[in-house]
Design a protein around this nucleic acid. Structure first.
Length: 316
RNA sequence: GGGUAGGUGGCGGAGUGGCCAAACGCACGACGCUGUAAACGUCGCGGUCUCUGAUCUACGGGGGUUCGAAUCCCUCCCUACCCA
C-alpha cells in the first residue's frame, strides 16, 4: 500500500506561505473533479475532496500570540495546530510531532489533502523525516542543576556518558549538552544512539517559496509596520503582565524587543527597527536550514506550485 | 576670537611607545542543529598571496622624534560643548 500524501509548503517568514497555501487550497478545491496535465497528453483523473492546513510554526501554537506571529486570518480553509497551548504550558517538537501526525492522518482519513505550512525547519523535519525523539521528557530538577555548571564541565560529563556523541556535539552549546546528558542519564543509553529516523510516514512533496532577498526585506518591513498598527504593543504588554519575560514563548521575535522599551531604555521606533532586523536575520537562518534539504522544490509562482501538486497527486 | 574634550575598521567603542591589522559589542557572511528551534551554538570578518605563514595598505591630513608610533612633539583640517 502506498503511503498517504502530504504536501509541505515552506519558506522564510513573510515570504507569503500562508497566502499561497490558502490560494492553492481554494484552487484545488475548485478543480475537484478532474484535471488535465498542462501538456494535455495525460488524461489521468483524480479527485480532491478538499485541503486542510496544518501549521508548522513554533509560535503560532500559542494562544494569545496573534499579531506578532502573523496568524492567518482566513477561515475558508480549516487550520490546525494554531492556538493549541497557553504560554505557561510546555511545548516542543516532540509534542508538535505527535499532534501534527495525528491531524495529518485524520485529514487523510477524510480523503482530503493535508498541507503542512510553516517555517519552523525542525518541526517540518520531524514530520517529513519521521524523527524519533528519545522518550525522555525534560527533567526540570536535573536541568536546573546542570544549568549552573559551565559548558566545559558539562562537556566532560557528557563525554563520559557518550564518548561517540561527544565528538559531534556543539561543545559550547549548553542547552544541547544538558539535553544530551539528560537523555543518557535517564535511559542509560548513549544519546547519540537514540537519534533516529523512522520509516517515512508520508509520501511528501515539499514546496519552497523562492523569493529575492530585497523583496523579502521589503515585505518584512511592511509586515512589521502593519503589526504595530494592529496593536502589537498592547498584545505584548498584556502577555507580559499575565506571564513574564522568562516564558520561552515570549523570546519570540516581535515580543522580546519590547522588553527594553517598557523599561524606558529604547524608543518605540527602535523597537520597530529591531523587530525588522531580527526578522531579517531569522529568515536567513531559516534559509540555511532549508538549503540542506535537497528535496524541496523551489517555486516562484503559484502556477509552478499548482503544476507540481497536480503531478504529485496524479502519479499514485 | 578664547577654552576644553575629541577624531581608531561598516557602526559603537578599547588601546596611550614594541606583545596591534588593533580588545569587546553590533552589523555582515558561512555553518551546525533529534523534547526551549522566531530558541541555542560554532567559525569567519582590511587587501593579496605559495594562507597554522608571508606581504602590502592602515588608527583625520602633513611633517618630526625614535631602532620602533594608533600611542610622544609640531602644524593643519574637522566635530562637540563651554565662554565671548
Amino acid at each position: 500500500m502506498s503511503r498517504a500524501k502530504l504536501i509541505v509548503i515552506l519558506g522564510p517568514t513573510a515570504s507569503g506561505k500562508s497566502e499561497l497555501a490558502v490560494r492553492l487550497a481554494l484552487r484545488l478545491r475548485a478543480s475537484t473533479e478532474l484535471s488535465r496535465m498542462s501538456s494535455g497528453q495525460s488524461k489521468k483523473r483524480f479527485r480532491i475532496k478538499g485541503v486542510e492546513i496544518i501549521s508548522a510554526d513554533s509560535r503560532q501554537v500559542y494562544k494569545e500570540m496573534d499579531i506578532g506571529t502573523a496568524k492567518p486570518l482566513t477561515r475558508r480553509i480549516p487550520h490546525y495546530l494554531i492556538d493549541v497551548v497557553r504560554l505557561n504550558e510546555e511545548f516542543n517538537v516532540a509534542i508538535y510531532k505527535r499532534l501534527a501526525v495525528k491531524k495529518i492522518k485524520e485529514i487523510q482519513k477524510r480523503k482530503k489533502i493535508p498541507f503542512l505550512v510553516g517555517g519552523t525547519g525542525l518541526y517540518i523535519k520531524s514530520i517529513v523525516d519521521n524523527l524519533n525523539f528519545p522518550k525522555v521528557i525534560p527533567q526540570k530538577k536535573l536541568r536546573e542543576k546542570l544549568e549552573k555548571k559551565s559548558t566545559k564541565v558539562l562537556f566532560k560529563i557528557y563525554q563520559k556518558l557518550d564518548p561517540k556523541g561527544a565528538k559531534i556535539i556543539d561543545k559550547g552549546n549548553k542547552r544541547r549538552l544538558i539535553r544530551a546528558i539528560e537523555v543518557c542519564q535517564f535511559t542509560k543509553i548513549p544519546f547519540s544512539k537514540q537519534k533516529k529516523e523512522g520509516r517515512a510516514l508520508f509520501d511528501v512533496l515539499e514546496i519552497g517559496i523562492k523569493i529575492d532577498k530585497k523583496e523579502l526585506d521589503k515585505r518584512i518591513s511592511k509586515r512589521v509596520d502593519k503589526m504595530i498598527k494592529m496593536g502589537l504593543e498592547n498584545e505584548v504588554k498584556s502577555l507580559v503582565k499575565k506571564y513574564s519575560w522568562k516564558t520561552p514563548a515570549l523570546q519570540a521575535i516581535g515580543y522580546q524587543e519590547w522588553c527594553d522599551y517598557f523599561q524606558g531604555k529604547i524608543k518605540k521606533n527602535e523597537v520597530k527597527e529591531k523587530i525588522k532586523l531580527h526578522t531579517r536575520q531569522f529568515t536567513k537562518r531559516q534559509m540555511t536550514w532549508f538549503k540542506s534539504d535537497k528535496r524541496i522544490e523551489w517555486i516562484k509562482t503559484r502556477n509552478e506550485a499548482i503544476n507540481l501538486i497536480r503531478k504529485f497527486l496524479e502519479d499514485s
